[in-house]
Amino acid sequence: MITICIIEDLIEIQKGLQSIIETDSRFSLLQSFENAEDAIAQLPLLNPDIVLTDINLPNKSGIDCITEIKAKIPNSQFIMFTIYEDNDQVFEALKAGANGYILKNTSPEKIIEALVELNDGGSPMSPKIARKVLSSFNISNNNVCELISKRELEVLELLSKGFLYKEIADKLNIAISTVKRHLNHIYAKLQVQNKTEAVNKLYGR
């Protein structure tokens, strides 16, 4: 069971997220918060697998929340759920320790896929966000290409464009378990811990 907490000040959106999470038997919703301050106080007691948080909150932001709480719940993963697409917000969130970044116009199906992917060790990003991340990189991936195989490079490039594990598997006509195995090999060869670090190396950030 994947345990989840939500930080969202707009009640309508918060209830929508709750409904999405509660309809999937793989998830257990622990608690929802309307501000970062309450979340910072209570998240260490709840220790959820995933925290789904907005950026724009009443006082402290979702990014502030991650910055303050990350060290206290190191096993929890944070995914931003926001309307913001500008580069500064994206990189501030990732720098603070966010493991994923999806936009509020993401479909319920994609939200569920993103949560599962995050729990499986991925770093889900909406395609628009992934493109913004890539556009900031100076593309110089010759060294990476020497380290990883052609198929591993295909997997990493698709992942960097925002495709989920299942979509990569379908495009390459391989099993999801094979996609994950390729990623484990990529992380080991590039000496990185996650997708974001691997993509950074691929595009020479």
Rank of each mutant, 00 (worst) to 15 (best):
I83K: 11
R205L: 14
I6C: 02
P74K: 06
L147Q: 13
N138V: 13
P48H: 07
L52D: 05
S76W: 06
E146Q: 11
K195C: 02
Y165L: 03
K195N: 11
F78D: 08
K95L: 00
F33L: 04
A36N: 05
S19L: 14
K15A: 00
I40E: 06
E8S: 11
I168F: 00
I69M: 04
L202E: 13
K128G: 02
G97D: 06
F91G: 06
S61H: 03
L159S: 07
Q14N: 15
I50Q: 06
V116D: 08
I83A: 12
E22V: 07
C65G: 03
A114S: 13
I4Q: 03
E37W: 05
I7V: 15
I73P: 11
D86M: 01
E109G: 05
P108G: 11
I186P: 07
N105K: 15
N87M: 09
K195R: 14
Q18E: 15
T106D: 12
I11Y: 14
S19Y: 09
I63N: 04
P58H: 12
P124N: 03
L202T: 08
A188G: 05
A41F: 14
Q14P: 08
N194S: 04
L46K: 10
N141D: 10
I174L: 09
G162R: 00
S76L: 05
L156K: 08
A71V: 10
I73N: 12
N87Q: 10
G204F: 14
A130P: 05
Y101A: 01
L30W: 04
N105E: 06
N143G: 08
A114N: 02
E22H: 02
K110W: 01
V192W: 09
N119R: 12
A93Y: 08
Q193D: 10
L94M: 13
S28Q: 12
D86T: 00
N184R: 07
D54F: 01
G16H: 06
Q77T: 11
Q42N: 15
I176T: 12
L164D: 03
S123Y: 04
